[in-house]
């Protein structure tokens, strides 16, 4: 967990007004410690991602929310799939898991 000073040191080229705007747009959702923002690793990585999308891939800020929304849905789904996988591992007997795997392999190729 880091404050805003460490964050700007860690991400070269990050401008504070940009960050404030991204937080205002709800693209970045830091925690709070009194009046100060605190950032955890996922926030830092996300800020870096937004920066890369904008500066390196030249996705302008008008288009960014669409990209972020789709990404959030993608990761949501992946998290759910992971939960499903864990639940299957925990609860489903081996032979059914194997049958499931065979069936999925079939539907993937067909």
């Amino acid at each position: 967990m880091i404050g805003i000073e460490l964050l700007t040191a860690e991400i070269p080229g990050l401008r504070l007004p940009d960050l404030e705007r991204w937080i205002g747009n709800d693209w970045v959702r830091p925690g709070h410690d009194g009046n100060a923002y605190v950032f955890v690793e996922v926030d830092v990585a996300r800020i870096r991602l937004i920066q890369e999308l904008r500066d390196e891939l030249q996705i302008d800020e008008d288009a960014l929310p669409v990209v972020l929304m789709l990404l959030d849905q993608l990761y949501d789904l992946r998290r759910r799939m992971r939960e499903l996988g864990t639940a299957i591992e925990r609860t489903v007997p081996d032979e059914i898991r194997q049958a499931l795997a065979r069936d999925l392999a079939k539907s993937g190729s067909g």
Partner: peptide, 13 residues
């Protein structure tokens, strides 16, 4: 590395 795990929940739908 974070988004699809537990920490990514805060950016979920």
């Amino acid at each position: 590395d974070y988004a699809a795990g537990e920490p990514g929940r805060r950016y979920g739908r």
